[in-house]
Amino acid sequence: MHNLASVEEFQLVSKKEKVIFFFNADWCGDCVFIKPEIPGIVKAHPEITFIKVDRDEFIELCEELSIVGIPSFLAYENGEEIGRFVSKNRKTKEEIEAFIQTL
């Protein structure tokens, strides 16, 4: 999984392909909880680009996108938001897979 490098990269990537942005932070217990499951989720969906977004590094982007809690997932395709799994609650692998199936 690639780490987001800039807001410009977010804008560019979200317009070109099917992508899921994974918003997280190193200090977040719920992010640490789900982190071991992420590589398997990414591998199971080669048709989707996954990009990790450090909430602390991109706090203004998170505010702009109404990311109210982490970990959270925001999906785009061809410049349009096609889904979001955003909440303050802990996420499970099964919930993330269910979210991806709705896209």
Rank of each mutant, 00 (worst) to 15 (best):
35 K>A: 15
34 I>L: 11
70 I>P: 01
86 V>Q: 05
16 K>P: 07
74 L>G: 02
85 F>A: 10
102 T>Y: 04
45 H>R: 07
103 L>K: 00
94 E>G: 03
82 I>W: 06
9 E>I: 09
71 P>D: 14
2 H>G: 10
24 N>A: 14
18 K>C: 10
103 L>F: 07
9 E>T: 04
40 G>I: 06
18 K>L: 15
14 S>Q: 14
86 V>I: 15
77 E>M: 10
102 T>I: 03
69 G>T: 11
102 T>M: 05
91 K>T: 13
89 N>H: 13
61 L>T: 02
80 E>K: 12
65 L>R: 00
78 N>Q: 11
44 A>Q: 10
11 Q>P: 08
25 A>I: 03
97 E>Y: 07
39 P>R: 02
82 I>N: 11
9 E>C: 06
29 G>M: 12
95 E>M: 08
62 C>R: 01
47 E>L: 09
71 P>E: 11
88 K>L: 09
75 A>N: 00
41 I>R: 01
8 E>Y: 09
95 E>S: 06
2 H>R: 12
85 F>P: 08
10 F>E: 03
63 E>D: 14
67 I>E: 04
74 L>H: 00
9 E>Y: 00
87 S>H: 00
69 G>I: 12
52 K>D: 15
24 N>Q: 13
23 F>V: 10
6 S>C: 06
16 K>M: 14
77 E>W: 00
84 R>H: 05
1 M>V: 15
70 I>E: 04
69 G>R: 04
89 N>G: 11
63 E>P: 05
3 N>T: 15
31 C>H: 02
90 R>Y: 07
52 K>C: 15
48 I>D: 00
58 F>W: 05
81 E>N: 14
47 E>R: 06
92 T>K: 00
89 N>P: 07
11 Q>S: 11
99 F>N: 06
53 V>W: 07
4 L>R: 02
58 F>P: 01
21 F>R: 01
92 T>A: 08
20 I>G: 05
3 N>I: 12
44 A>C: 05
99 F>A: 05
54 D>V: 07
59 I>G: 01
2 H>F: 15
76 Y>A: 02
25 A>L: 03
1 M>W: 07
72 S>L: 03
83 G>T: 06
63 E>I: 13
81 E>M: 14
83 G>A: 06
64 E>N: 11
43 K>T: 13
97 E>H: 09
45 H>S: 11
23 F>C: 07
68 V>T: 14
64 E>F: 09
85 F>R: 07
73 F>V: 05
92 T>W: 03
13 V>T: 07
97 E>M: 09
37 E>W: 00
96 I>N: 05
